[in-house]
């Protein structure tokens, strides 16, 4: 296999200070290759979300190394990490994190504007991405006017529109009902199967995790089990 897309080496994360110090991650080693679909699982407080935020460059580790495509993220500046997110990473959050009073199309255009893409091109791409998640007719609705499932699909489209190397999905079904959850997971699975998009999913539900091809379980800030550690 080629060199890994993502590699964590002895990553720890501490919160707080002194007596109140809590260790969220206590030395995590994890390797993820391109085109994988990984579910990161574990009870709340196990460190799975923290790991996810560090992988997504939304948060910085206290110690240890994080290599993204061979680059040590720890040596990058804030702006360089922003550029990494801009060009290589996509996010889907539990709370959707769309701009509420902004239309679906304009939410999708946002990452493309930061990339400096021209008006026509970004509009075309956004429309295509919206159609891919089945919301072609909802482009001019604001996020607040859409249902939870629709919002999450817009969020997925936003993560995909910039064609990232990897999509991080943090409890993407946490705010959705069962039917809608399975719809969203099928969508993610198709994106992985058909387009080979690397997906890292955080969840605590077994049936959601089952959509992924590899399950990594966290407990007390360490990896407890890993079904398909890459060869």
């Amino acid at each position: 296999m080629s060199s890994p897309l993502i590699e964590l080496r002895g990553v720890t994360k501490l919160y707080g200070e002194g007596e109140a110090m809590v260790s969220a991650l206590a030395g995590v080693d994890l390797t993820i290759h391109a085109h994988e679909f990984v579910a990161v699982m574990g009870p709340s407080g196990s460190g799975k979300s923290t790991a996810m935020n560090i992988l997504g460059c939304l948060d910085t580790p206290t110690a240890g190394q994080y290599l993204f495509q061979g680059t040590d993220v720890g040596t990058l500046s804030r702006d360089e990490r922003a550029m990494l997110r801009r060009y290589h990473l996509g996010f889907v959050f539990q709370g959707f994190n769309l701009l509420k009073r902004t239309t679906a199309i304009e939410n999708l255009e946002l990452p493309l504007i930061y990339r400096g893409m021209g008006r026509k091109e970004r509009h075309k791409r956004s429309s295509v991405a919206l159609a891919q998640v089945g919301l072609a007719e909802r482009g001019h609705h604001t996020a607040a006017q859409l249902s939870g499932g629709q919002q999450q699909r817009v969020a997925i489209a936003r993560a995909l529109v910039s064609e990232p190397a990897v999509v991080f999905a943090d409890e993407p079904t946490g705010n959705l009902d069962t039917a809608m959850s399975h719809e969203i997971m099928s969508l993610l699975r198709r994106l992985n199967d058909d387009r080979g998009i690397t997906i890292v999913l955080v969840t605590h539900e077994e049936d959601i995790a089952a959509y992924a091809k590899r399950q990594v379980r966290f407990r007390d800030g360490r990896i407890h089990s890993d079904t398909g550690a890459a060869a």
Binding site: G56, L58, R78, D79, A82, M83, R85, R86, Y87, L89, F91, N97, L98, L99, L110, P111, Y114, R115, R158, S162
Partner: peptide, 16 residues
């Protein structure tokens, strides 16, 4: 602040 968080997450730099 949340809006800024969203913008940062999808690739905005501080100066943007």
């Amino acid at each position: 602040t949340r809006e800024i968080g969203i913008r940062l997450a999808i690739g905005a730099r501080e100066r943007d």
